[in-house]
């Protein structure tokens, strides 16, 4: 617009015609005040207009800041910028976070890890057909996962950032492979059931959250704080809810009753205990169990169940 006042509305004699059924024929007028700042006056409108959080009714008037005021008129949002106002800097084009070669290295490493996995699971001399579901299924799954995130990118960032999402997924899959090998092995090697339990209960959810976080930050880089807060809340709520449910139903925090991973003989570094120690270790179990049994019996009595 090159001249004041600027009139907004559905009638054809406005400076700016808004073709919107929720807009009045002469909805609002923008003028330049004596102080050099723009102001807005609402015309004969049923809906009025909204500036920031403030709603103006017909006939009301309000001064506007020099730059950045957003006017909601009917279903339209108009941002007001005066000729002299500073312009926001240019955004960089979305770049793949990992360059081509590195992506192929990640892919190769992951494929190697999966082949090793499958090799361990199959008996020696297994039919080649037994590799098929593995070799077809995993890449398909990965492609679908990355494709869905890329669609999200298309929606929010106007670019189908498949390779960026693939790099994120592959990097985290490799992290998972390493952690999933190291942590249970370490727990078994040193005889640390607590480490195994912590990893078994919370390791995978935590890794999952980190993967989703990376994908989301690729999608919505401006919303880092909100993403962190939302995921942390979900994770925390999950951990607390599982813990509480387990405590109520099982009388312990962890779902698994014992550590099932066994150390290889060469990696067994934990100490062995003499047999009588096992009997002694049962004493605290007895006390905890008797307490739980009393509580459960009392609960049954309260709920009217008189079964044994």
């Amino acid at each position: 617009m090159h001249a004041w006042p600027v009139t907004l509305g559905r009638a054809l004699d406005n400076t700016w015609v808004l073709d919107d059924p929720h807009v009045a024929p002469h909805h609002a007028t923008l003028t330049l005040g004596a102080d050099g700042l723009p102001q807005v006056q609402v015309g004969d409108s049923r809906n009025g207009l909204q500036i920031g959080r403030r709603r103006l009714r017909a006939g009301e008037q309000m001064p506007l800041p020099a730059a950045g005021a957003v006017l909601a008129i009917g279903g339209q949002r108009l941002r007001l910028r005066l000729a002299g106002a500073p312009v926001a800097p240019e955004w960089p084009l979305a770049q793949p976070s990992v360059a081509g070669a590195a992506l192929w290295v990640l892919l190769a490493a992951w494929v190697a890890a999966q082949v090793l996995h499958r090799w361990v699971q199959l008996d020696p001399g297994a039919d080649l057909v037994e590799w098929l579901p593995w070799l077809l299924g995993l890449p398909t799954g990965l492609a679908v996962w990355c494709g869905l995130w890329a669609l999200g990118s298309k929606l929010f960032r106007h670019g189908f950032e498949f390779s960026s999402h693939a790099a994120i997924a592959l990097a985290w899959l490799l992290v998972y492979e390493v952690v999933d090998l190291l942590v249970p092995t370490t727990a078994a090697a040193f005889g640390w059931p607590w480490l195994w339990q912590v990893y078994n209960q919370w390791g995978l959810p935590l890794l999952g959250m980190l993967v989703v976080r990376s994908h989301l930050r690729q999608l919505l880089p401006q919303r880092a704080w909100a993403i962190n807060a939302a995921l942390a809340t979900v994770l925390l709520a999950g951990v607390v809810v599982t813990g509480v449910i387990n405590q109520r139903q099982l009388g312990r925090v962890f779902s698994a009753p014992y550590m099932p991973t066994l150390p290889m003989p060469a990696l067994r570094w934990g100490a062995t205990t003499p047999l009588p120690a096992v009997g002694d270790a049962m004493v605290p179990l007895r006390d905890a169990l008797q307490q739980q049994a009393r509580a459960a019996a009392a609960e049954d009595a309260d709920s009217g169940d008189t079964g044994p």
Partner: peptide, 24 residues
């Protein structure tokens, strides 16, 4: 009520290392 377990690596006969999980 649900079982509670304790686990150890014990030295069984002749020093055979044995993972033992005892649940009550």
């Amino acid at each position: 009520v649900a079982a509670q377990c304790t686990e150890r690596t014990v030295a069984a006969g002749g020093g055979l290392p044995l993972r033992a999980v005892v649940c009550l």
